[in-house]
Amino acid sequence: MIELDRVTKRYDGRSVVDDLSLTIRSGELCVLLGSSGCGKSTTLRMINRLVTADAGTIRVDGKDIIAFAPEVLRRRIGYAIQSTGLFPHWTVADNIATVPRLLDWPGPRIAARVKELLELFRLDPAAYRGKYPHQLSGGEQQRVGVARALAADPELLLMDEPFAAVDPITRDALQSELLRIHRATGKTIVFVTHDIEEALRLATLIAVMDQGHIVQSATPLDLLEHPASDFVRDFVGRQGLGLKLLSVRRVAERVRRGESAPGESLPQEASLRDALSAMTAQRTDRLPVADPAGRPIGIITLADLVR
């Protein structure tokens, strides 16, 4: 659990983060959402003390982070950034092993962990271990960057616009992987982005920020259905609201169990927006739904989407 309690950061007398309080429960994927200069990155960087708060306290699992030496604190918190910051003179394996080495893990344990992480990110260890960052595509570099952040198995992962610099198709794939890994590991993740679609897709909790304040923190669905102010309503976008609502609801919520229909089945984890897209493409008003193992569990119809 992370608690930010009346945290303030000033630069040259101007408050970048102003009296901000936020609680993020364990296992949450909290997205700090806002336009540039709203203080979201500063807030994130205060959690691992890359930026020191001028006032207020930050507690991780109940302990004030001031109690730790900054380096000790940072080795316990994963950190991934937009331009990856991979060390260009180290191989993929060496990059991933950075924090385990700082923590003096024994060699075999480090090697096993590197292999495990590469497999988790679907990068063949034999092929990728010895490569240098410049030999990887943008998406692969970003995967290695996140793998490196997870290397010492931190409870908490901080991600600062990690997918902002990759192309839309790669970003989509990376978002799916992050969701998969979040579900698989149950890590607490704090994720900074200015992209509303990315926030709606990933977050369990969205904190919308403006001028150093949190203007609303809510689930994606709540945010869309009950925006707290005109600012939030504007930021999430008045246009395409229906589609955004569809994108934050899962097929599993609307499935008619026990019924069956022809066609290509949808995974129950898919969003209602995916379902609408698939129905339109396949010119049908109903599609079968399958569980993660691929077994059919029921169907979903066009009418169910707007229910």
Binding site: L50, V72, R74, Y79, I81, T84, G85, L86, V99, R148
Partner: peptide
């Protein structure tokens, strides 16, 4: 970015 990542990892 490389320096920032290095600091951020401790």
């Amino acid at each position: 970015a490389v320096i920032d990542a290095a600091r951020g990892m401790g």
